[in-house]
Write a protein that binds this DNA or RNA. Sequence first.
DNA 1: CGGAAATTTGAAATCGCTCAATGATAGTGG
DNA 2: CCACTATCATTGAGCGATTTCAAATTTCCG
Lengths: 266, 266
Amino acid sequence: MSVNGAAQNADLKTAALRRLQEFISLDDQELSALENAVSCQRVYRRREPILRQGDRVTHVYLLIDGWVGSHTEVDGGSNQLSKVHLPGDIAGLPNIALVEAASSLIPLTVATVGLIPLKNLARLFETAPRLALTLFVNAQQERVMLMDHLAAVGQTDATQRVCALLMHFHRRLKLLRPDHRDLIDWPLSQEHMAQGAGLTSVHVNRTLRELTRKGLIERVGKSIRLLDVDAVSELAAFPDRRFVHEPSWLTSMERSHGRRVAAVSK
Amino acid sequence: MSVNGAAQNADLKTAALRRLQEFISLDDQELSALENAVSCQRVYRRREPILRQGDRVTHVYLLIDGWVGSHTEVDGGSNQLSKVHLPGDIAGLPNIALVEAASSLIPLTVATVGLIPLKNLARLFETAPRLALTLFVNAQQERVMLMDHLAAVGQTDATQRVCALLMHFHRRLKLLRPDHRDLIDWPLSQEHMAQGAGLTSVHVNRTLRELTRKGLIERVGKSIRLLDVDAVSELAAFPDRRFVHEPSWLTSMERSHGRRVAAVSK
DNA sequence: CGGAAATTTGAAATCGCTCAATGATAGTGG
DNA sequence: CCACTATCATTGAGCGATTTCAAATTTCCG
């Protein structure tokens, strides 16, 4: 696909790392600390599990390119899609609190992934405290998104949930590439959407169909076009969160230059 | 209530801090670093908001005693209870990624809370990297619990969700005080339970009643007794997670003695 | 081109909701 | 300590959003 694989790869990596600087900008040393934590890089095919629920936890996964779903199997074989990871996300992080992985990581598209051994991750907390704090804030952001997801599934009807899904990805993609318009390249099957929204694929189908009939969206092949973003957003009842950017309590932290001295200790 | 308020308070604080050492034990210096981050301590009455959704984010809240609910209001006035905090939890953490608080923190009982200004929290990442890493792992654990919560609400029926709630608190209380038996002092109203489970209070009532009729639980005043823990656990379809304890990747991290030198830098 | 995966559609069933009213309990202030 | 009031629990009847089941198309991928 690429004329120059190496160059494209570098671009992808840069894009992925930009994602982490949503809260504070990191210096080169901090960025390379993260990059050096990656022990190896791999490309996974669609549906080829990166990690299976129940597996022993050994790594976390920096997603460099592609979409990856985090699926939790419940008791009777049904599945909950708790998160879809986009480039720049670190997937599998919640598992570090566990002995066995809580969810499977399955690529929804071809995916390029950097593997980070847990020990390397831990080391970042010593060597790059600002990066560590960024990862921490990032984890809290994930909690907010999960809370909103839960609120949508727990409190809203099918139309609202489907619209919430659409808006969720619309917004995240816009952050990822500012040139993103209203046509979304949509690798999620209706079954996936159903597993995310706590619905049946049958009902997701009917809901999408209804949205199409009302002229709010248009589906072209695997893509979805939002014809009326405001109306969909309205229907979604899904908050458009304002995440912090360079807040004083965060920026005032001194950068690490390897010269962290005893001044802070008693 | 207490003969010696100060002494009891110290006990409570100790208990709260123990909660953070689920993953690795911390040394005295690290524990006092956290304690020093608390700028002031306050007692809140039941229902007296500690923080309101939409408020500007200035602190996080170390819960020392009592139960505190995290409620997110959705669009049409309905509420999702995304988390109930028990002593030792740090409440309001997800908000640090946000400009305005995503959820309200409302005590379900009288609650004693230590307020931690954001700047003090950030400083811990410089002064106590092992504590910071503990907080990070703790955040990931919260994500796992939120994912399980989501899976329950999204994929299971009313009986399973109510049983999941019961088991959830049963297990958390057992960790908190090993002497805990099957009688749970239950400050949640059926309306609260409904908001947590994504159900109606009416339906929660019928479900509880049905569980009582089957002899699985017994309700005495505000308490609930699990008469058949195994059966309830079975019905819950709710995984009993094994969280890590002193894993090698975590324990191998060197303790901070304020003598962190340039060795780690390039 | 062939087979698997995904979408689409209808009809019937059901779980949980709504509405509405009554009864029980627990704080609160006099 | 009692009365008052707000909150909480309980119950019934009818309704409706979503599921289930099943089958026909269509699309995608190798």
